[in-house]
Write a protein that binds this DNA or RNA. Structure first.
Length: 867
RNA sequence: GCGGGCGUGGCGGAACUGGUAGACGCAACGGACUUAAAAUCCGUUGGGCGAAAGCCCGUGGGGGUUCAAGUCCCUCCGCCCGCACCA
């Protein structure tokens, strides 16, 4: 048995695909299109195993759909702006642009070695002015359409990366990149009005039926819609209030607007609470030093503190009271409370301790009345009391005047109507989703095309001056944004009045670039972001593939961006990604030496089933398999694997062991197994080919039984593999291919009919592995005497007549337990099957002397004799 | 706390709408080839009892529906993920 020369074969295959332009995509209205896209990478310099899995899955789909006759668009590009390049600049004194393009070059080489069927002529890099100039134009359009605005607000500040972060980029109170606890700062920032689309973004999730439920749910929760009532409370100073407080209240002027989803509990209201950042708190704080100090305390804690969880519910009595809207004389103390968020609802609530756990805790702390107003249906209302737990279920209204006896839903409705009629309330829907803050205080990003003029204010850069390009001559010797301290770039005359003005030195969040790149791929060199014709033809992306980590971030931003682009006339659709596959992570065991330091997989070896250090043989502790990460050193360099085993081996391994959406355990044995299979296949074809009839040779004689049986196996495999690929069950497809290989390996050279059937089987095998192991497929195809390419060959079609067996195996059960099987002709009638079953010795032995109650017969499947 | 997912041999995983549990692979063991090893090829491999035919048990635990449950329902346990003072 000889060894397969993957190096030669893979280089040859890649060269010929490129030479013949196999993967070039062109609009062709006469053909059905299929756009498959993998999340484009950040050019870090080296591909990692996660990339390999992602692109292998994408290529599988692309090649399969191409073979099925679709006009496939499968592009690749670079999400090239971002902080790592800037951090590298600080550390190694290399310009971010230079390192980025170097990285792109080396990663391109690695990707090309994988044999991925990309249309490389469409490659884009988002850091190129040819890309971001259109982003700047879009921003100006968004501005004109009211979709972008600037405001001063409290923002999440990452003290390590020296920049602002969007809410989506704060994970557990820490920066998503740096991991540093996020601080609160008040800054003037650019925002995109994603909240304008909150309702549509949530509603349209229903239409994304080829997205995982999990992702849809995560987006739904993130957008966080709740329906309720905004209601006004009239305010007055309490008897205890100071004169200053009373005066401050006058300056606030107006009722207190609260938001509630439980207006039905209004008769149980015991207090109102406002956010420390509420304008009323501001006003009152000016008149009360104690309150001012409390507010400062709250802000220091911010949302950054992980201590939120344990933080006590604290409030400060402002000395103001709110009048109950329906009970004259009932006064609710107004607190400033640390748990009320200015960003949600109206930044103010009324508290009903009996029916909200948080309000209950607050009430217990400040000794406020706990008045139940909803009782479980069927309980004695007068005896219903609240102890430790608030009652939040449905029930019947009590102690609530005109609401008494109603169900919660009805009571909500009645209160809402009353408040609306009185002009004191309004039914509203509020969202958790905040507008997307896109300003970043960093250099390596797309400049925001705005000029700040001392006399004209904010002025947009005229379109004729676009793109605003980044200056090359920057230094990173100090922390912070080098654009902000640049000697010349920053200073420009105002485009309107000509006086000295300053450029906006913030750049866009890099998620802005990735929010529209899929559209740019449809017309990558157009003199516009893309053309309407190309976008209309190719979009939406039919199948998008990437990691679950973007479930909210990138995928939500892109959905918003598509809507915003539509509003500005660029596009005619709302949803960019019709199908989404979220791949699982690649995991690996972890290793630690005696001192507890992490070891690379290369630094350990196995001796007699024990894992030891590769040098001195000292014992190594093996940890559970977890996501590959540099910090735990459980990483494998795919480039080294490709070098040692070839691209097809790593591709096959990526597909075979786990379904795509599940985590995949990397094992050396798995790689070895894939490599072994490739060699086996190659040897089988190489050895068989000389004895086979020539390609396209008609069948001379009738097929014998054995040859017929082989054909049946071949055609059943075609059906099974096609179905598996349609449903992305790639691991099963691989298993089917292996089965067919085993089947073919069992057949020997035979008569003409057998060799004819073997040719069909081997050719089918070559075509079926085309999407998985494209290089080997070409090699086999050629060995079988074909001139053309598998990459250009149509997907095999199964002969339906061959996929249905004439005979079936039917399970025979007695009382539901398997007692034997019967080999019978397909679609045999009930009576014949029953007779055959009862005649089985094992069945006869059990039924002897007993009455058969009934016999269940499922055609072609099962016969169950019930005694 | 809320929401979601998962739990099948030594391991990764199969099992379409309830109908022969463990496909395919990995690992292990036995054998062939070899002076020997590697590679390769052939075979065995869920557990228990048995000389064998065969029988019993078995999809996290318990209960239920059904002729029949890995699959449906209830309940408990464990693990993973997302959100989290959301009014």
């Amino acid at each position: 048995m000889s060894r397969y020369n993957f190096k030669e074969t893979e280089a040859k295959g890649q060269a010929i695909w490129e030479e013949r332009g196999c993967f070039r995509a062109n609009e062709d209205p006469g053909r059905k299109k299929y756009y498959v896209l993998e999340m484009f990478p950040y050019p870090s310099g080296r591909i990692h195993v996660g990339h390999v899995r992602n692109y292998t899955l994408g290529d599988m789909v692309a090649r399969y759909k191409r073979a099925c006759g679709y006009n496939v668009l499968h592009p690749m590009g670079w999400d090239a702006f971002g902080m790592p390049a800037e951090n590298a600049a600080i550390e190694n004194n290399i310009h971010p642009g230079k390192s980025t393009y170097q990285n792109i070059e080396s990663m391109t080489r690695q990707l090309k070695a994988m044999g991925l069927s990309y249309d490389w002529s469409r490659e884009i890099a988002t850091c190129s002015p040819d890309y971001y100039r259109y982003e700047q134009k879009m921003f100006l359009d968004f501005l004109a359409a009211g979709l972008a605005y600037r405001k001063e607000s409290w923002v999440n500040w990452d003290p390590v990366d020296h920049t602002v972060l969007a809410n989506e980029q704060v994970i557990d109170g820490r920066g998503w990149r740096s991991g540093a606890p996020v601080e609160k700062r008040k800054l003037s920032q650019w925002f995109l009005r994603i909240s304008d689309f909150a309702d549509d973004l949530i509603e349209s999730l229903k239409s994304l039926d080829r997205w995982p439920d999990r992702v849809r749910l995560m987006q739904e929760n993130w957008i966080g819609r709740s329906e309720g009532l905004r209601m006004s409370f009239r305010l007055a100073p309490s008897r205890a209030a100071s004169a200053e407080t009373a005066k401050a209240l006058d300056s606030f002027d107006g009722p207190l607007e609260v938001f509630t989803t439980r207006p039905d509990t209004i008769f149980g209201a015991a207090f109102c609470a406002i956010s420390p950042n509420h304008p009323l708190a501001d006003a009152l704080g000016g008149a009360d030093d104690g309150l001012a100090a409390f507010i400062q305390d709250c802000n220091r804690l911010g949302t950054a503190e992980a201590a939120i969880e344990t933080a006590e519910k604290e409030g400060f009595d402002t000395g103001i009271i709110a009048r109950h809207p329906f009970v004259s004389g009932r006064e609710l103390p107004v607190y400033v409370a640390n748990f009320v968020l200015m960003e949600y609802g109206s930044g103010a609530i009324f508290g009903c301790p009996a029916h909200d756990q948080r309000d209950l805790e607050f009430a217990r702390t400040y000794d406020l009345a706990v008045r139940p107003v909803v009782a479980p249906k069927g309980t004695d209302a007068s005896g219903f009391t609240i102890n430790e737990d608030a009652y939040t279920e449905d029930g019947v209204l009590i102690n609530s005047d005109f609401l008494d006896g109603m169900a919660v839903a009805q009571a909500k409705d009645v209160i809402a109507r009353r408040m609306e009629e009185a002009g004191d309330g309004e039914r509203v829907t509020v969202y958790r989703l905040r507008d997307w803050g896109i300003s970043r205080q960093r250099y390596w990003g797309c400049p925001i095309p705005i000029i700040h003029c001392p006399s004209c204010g904010m002025v947009t850069v005229p379109e004729s001056d676009l793109p605003v390009t980044l200056p090359e001559d920057v230094n990173f010797d100090k922390p912070g944004n080098p654009l902000d301290r640049h000697a010349s770039w920053k200073y420009v005359p105002c485009p309107q009045c000509g006086t000295d003005a300053e450029r906006e030195t913030d750049t866009f969040d890099t998620f802005v670039e990735s929010s529209w790149y899929f559209a740019r791929f449809t017309a990558p060199v157009a003199d516009a972001p893309f053309t309407r014709e190309a976008a209309d033809y190719w979009l939406p992306v039919d199948q998008y593939i990437g990691g679950i980590e973007h479930a909210v971030l990138h995928l939500l931003y892109s959905r918003f961006f598509t809507r915003a682009l539509r509003k500005c006339g660029y596009l005619g659709l709302d949803e960019p990604f019709a199908g989404l596959l979220t791949q699982g992570m690649v995991c690996h065991e972890t290793y630690r030496d005696a001192a507890g330091s992490w070891l690379l997989p290369d630094q350990v070896r196995r001796v007699d089933g024990k894992v030891v250090h590769f040098e001195d043989g000292s014992p190594v502790t093996v940890g559970r398999s977890e996501k590959m990460s540099k910090s735990r050193k459980n990483v494998v360099d795919p480039a080294a694997i490709i070098e040692a085993y070839g691209a097809d081996t790593i591709r096959l391994f990526m597909l075979s062991d786990s379904p795509p959406e599940r985590d995949l355990d990397w094992t050396d044995a798995g790689i070895e197994g894939a490599w072994r299979f490739i060699n086996r296949l190659w040897n089988m074809v190489e050895n068989a080919a000389p004895n086979l009839p020539p390609p396209g040779c008609p069948l001379a004689n009738d097929l014998g039984e054995a040859a017929h049986e082989l054909r049946r196996g071949v055609h059943k495999t075609i059906t099974a593999v096609s179905g598996d690929l349609d449903r992305f069950h790639f691991n099963r497809a691989v298993a089917r291919v292996r089965e067919l290989t085993n089947l073919l390996a069992e057949t020997a050279d035979g008569g003409d009919d057998m060799n004819w059937a073997r040719r069909e089987g081997l050719e089918t095998l070559a075509l079926l592995i085309g999407p998985m192991m494209p290089h080997l497929a070409e090699q086999l195809w050629q060995a079988l005497g074909h001139d053309g390419l598998v990459a250009a060959a149509p997907w095999p079609v199964a002969d339906a007549a061959l996929t249905i067996d004439d005979r079936v195996t039917i399970a025979v059960q007695v009382n539901g337990k398997l007692r034997g099987t019967l080999d019978l002709v397909r679609d045999i009638g009930r009576d014949d099957a029953e007779a055959a079953a009862l005649a089985l010795p094992a069945v006869a032995a059990m039924t002897e002397g007993k009455a058969v109650q009934k016999v269940i017969f499922v055609p072609n499947r099962v016969i169950n004799v019930v005694l």
